[in-house]
């Protein structure tokens, strides 16, 4: 479904701020794979997702989605077969547009925009039913501006929008990091449900090691722009946070020094 081969990206080449963000990243996802990506700050997790989404052109390598090499396609063209949810709840929705209008925009992802009505009566009914499944009461506020929603509500809506038209790849870029723990758990649960029901191929970046173990069928650990650990199936199911930390030291030759990840370890131990 998705194959990354030797993907490289350097930001600000030739300047004092030069940063080798991706150093030969290769990854092969099967149809229906749900991979979680963990790693320290600057490991290249989000950069990998942005490379797939086409936020900027990569320096070298290939990205093949569903048999097509997409490296030459700009962001909006790739969006036709990629669904995305971002870390910042503000990024995924248009605040000054209505809930139903946001959904209508997502419904037409990948299609030519014509001079037909931007939203039809039939769609409204469809969205009403769809929003009910979120169980957030949004079905009664369909004409409200999205700017009035809470962060959690916006992320739930963005998830719905990203998958309204079934994407070949779903990219979740720390999409629960800005939410409080309870809402984060709810949005994660919803993500699981949507991915499973639609049999989606998904990549999820997270700082939370316990969540990375719990969700998905595959786990990838990154450091300094390369994948240092890749595990799936039974082996992944039996992982623990301590094992992950060990793996990190073993593979990178250094201790994990990332406050957010260590905090999430402490959380995991408490619970």
């Amino acid at each position: 479904m998705l194959t990354l081969t030797d993907v490289r990206k350097t930001f600000n080449p030739g300047t004092i701020n030069e940063k080798h963000a991706l150093n030969s990243v290769s990854l092969d996802l099967d149809d229906g794979d749900f991979v979680t990506i963990i790693g320290g700050n600057g490991a290249g997790k989000s950069t990998t997702l942005n490379a797939v989404a086409g936020v900027w052109p990569i320096d070298s390598g290939s990205i093949i989605i569903n048999g097509q090499n997409v490296v030459g396609l700009p962001e909006h063209k790739r969006a036709g077969f990629i669904g995305r949810v971002f870390q910042d709840p503000m990024t995924g929705t248009a605040a000054t547009m209505e809930i139903q209008e946001n959904l209508a925009l997502a419904k037409r992802r990948g299609q030519a925009r014509t001079l037909k009505w931007g939203i039809t009566k039939k769609e409204r009914e469809e969205y009403h039913e769809l929003l009910k499944t979120l169980d957030l009461g949004l079905e009664d506020r369909m004409t409200s501006k999205v700017g009035l929603l809470s962060g959690g509500q916006r992320q739930a809506l963005t998830l719905l929008m990203a998958t309204l038209k079934k994407p070949d790849i779903l990219l979740l870029d720390e999409h629960t990091a800005a939410l409080d723990p309870k809402t984060a758990a709810k949005v994660l649960e919803l993500s699981d449900k949507i991915i499973e029901e639609n049999h989606l191929t998904a990549m999820m970046v997270t700082h939370n090691m316990a969540a990375a173990i719990k969700h998905g069928n595959r786990l990838v650990m990154m450091n300094n722009g390369v994948i240092i650990y890749d595990v799936k199936g039974e082996e992944k199911k039996h992982l623990t946070v301590d094992m992950l930390l060990e793996k990190f030291e073993e593979a990178s030759g250094s201790k994990l020094e990332n406050d957010r990840m260590l905090l999430s370890k402490a959380d995991a131990e408490r619970s």
Binding site: A79, G80, A162
Partner: peptide
């Protein structure tokens, strides 16, 4: 709609193709 979305949130607009 595409113009309104572009004015409201260009990142979102691009993510919606």
């Amino acid at each position: 709609f595409t113009i309104r979305a572009t004015g409201s949130n260009p990142n979102m607009a691009r993510a919606q193709s």
